[in-house]
Design a protein around this nucleic acid. Structure first.
Lengths: 280, 280
DNA sequence: AACCATATTCCGTATTACGAAACAGTTATA
DNA sequence: TATAACTGTTTCGTAATACGGAATATGGTT
């Protein structure tokens, strides 16, 4: 997988640790030293030294019986601490809860990170006992080009930003509805930007439909997006047009206002750069 | 702070990265390179090299305008993935929700990690609008000796385990109710172990009272604990004795059964070591 | 009891990261 | 507008650091 601007002098240890974490992330029930050292391509001794250092600080832990290595709880600690440091999340949460209650569907809060849409909060509706539930998780990533929230966020990127993203991540075909043509995507993003909401019409996963709206900060930057997601059978196109679209936009606007955004959504593009690049 | 068995050949980079993360964790609004390098005691150049390597893999991120460094979302990703890898958490969750609904209070799931009680799940009651809410967070740690859940977990440790914990962490006085005498603690733990539940009677934080019960796995090990927590004014001693204690024990037993624990709680200590240390 | 598999530790070597200093980019000051 | 002051970023010769193959411990199996 391609990444953005690779530094020419990466610290070797950090690169190795990142690889180790990634391998462990795929090993739900822990991994032995032998297997891990094979997978990351390091001698056992070297891998062991890294692991015991990581274990000392709590970033990995070793099961006392099986000797298998697992990710450590320090990661949970730091990850959740980071989420709490995000003012955005704290401020958005009550609105998400309200929206979820009103629509009786799962609501997500998403930011763009490393050119992917990253879930930073999730509110599930309690009122769907036994019903279908979209599988998602805080910390999960989805491609930007085939999710409502992703499209919203990149719709407010610069032309260059979008090109870079396409170059780095590509436009993988996830379903038959996925937009995979760069030009079609750019046209679509223009519409998304102008209409102030986006729909994921089973573009990422067959059977899942979403509708989302962008959140703007004080500077008018689209820093996040929210969406309502669920099974396409329940989230019908009709329901989106008649009800959900309106609700998600309303909520997103309320959150934006909470963050200090003052511009009206009705006049997009106008009166926007009052602070950005305006030397007299 | 003292730690368990320090390896003699820690990898320097990992030690430095751990320090950097800890400093960042305390910097809610990001930290400048200058400030960070000063705090961790590294030359700017060195700190910068580590940071840019970490940033490349998403473990830190740099705010585009302020240039300040923040913890990166990769930590969220790994942390939440780890939580999902824990069978315990998935299996316990429905029981926690039920317990929270029934008692209308906040319920926590906790494990022992590095001699501290670590919250790995939290279910808040929705039925307390505007009411008091205990501040807690998944990933947060509390000392073991002054929390209901912590006492439960160390009550099932070996004598040596408890001694090590006391040596490493000490028994800090958090409130006037905190048990700070090693012998008194050991006596108390014996009672906790025998009665099958524990109470935190404002021992960690004035005004907060908790009652908890242990969760046993198939091997009869106390691998986790659950608790009901809330303001002492609401969680009265009476309510604990008449209602909450019973409910939390019942729920903990149900989860233990779910995990394959078969021994009856009524006969603690008896018929326990059928698999642990039984050479013929 | 001997064996096998895996984890852990050791130690001489050279590769890796180090960090002082130069450079660049940005903001404050005259 | 020029200049100073500050912070972030990059460079490069050096030596300390981590490397990794091989020896040793551990513990489970035949």
């Amino acid at each position: 997988m391609l990444r953005e601007e690779k530094p020419n002098n990466l610290v070797q240890t950090i690169e190795r640790v990142a690889t180790i974490f990634d391998v462990m992330a795929q090993s739900a029930h822990g991994i032995s030293l032998k297997e891990l050292s094979a997978k990351v391509g390091l001698p056992k001794g070297t891998a062991h030294r890294l692991l015991s250092s990581l274990a000392y600080f709590g970033y990995v832990r070793q099961a006392s019986e099986s000797k298998n290595y697992h990710l450590g709880f320090k990661l949970v600690e730091l990850g959740n601490l980071l989420l709490d440091q995000l003012d955005l999340r704290a401020q958005a949460r009550p609105f998400l809860i309200k929206l979820s209650k009103k629509t009786k569907e799962t609501v997500h809060l998403v930011v763009l990170d490393q050119n992917e849409a990253l879930y930073i909060d999730k509110v599930v509706s309690n009122d769907k006992p036994g019903g279908l539930q979209m599988v998602s998780r805080v910390g999960l990533r989805v491609p930007a080009h085939c999710s409502a929230v992703g499209k919203l966020l990149i719709a407010h990127l610069s032309e260059k930003g979008v090109n870079d993203l396409i170059l780095l991540k590509g436009l993988s075909q996830r379903t038959r509805n996925t937009i995979t043509d760069p030009d079609r995507l750019k046209t679509h993003l223009k519409i998304v930007r102008e209409q102030g909401y986006a729909i994921d019409n089973e573009e990422n996963e067959k059977g899942i439909r979403c509708v989302g709206a962008p959140i703007f900060d004080q500077q008018g930057q689209a820093i996040a997006a929210i969406s309502i997601s669920g099974p396409a059978a329940r989230i019908t196109k009709q329901l989106v047009q008649n009800f959900l679209k309106k609700e998600v936009i309303k909520t997103a606007q309320a959150i934006s206002r909470e963050l200090g955004y003052t511009d009206t959504i009705q006049t997009p593009g106008i009166n926007k750069n009052f602070k950005k690049g305006g030397e007299p």
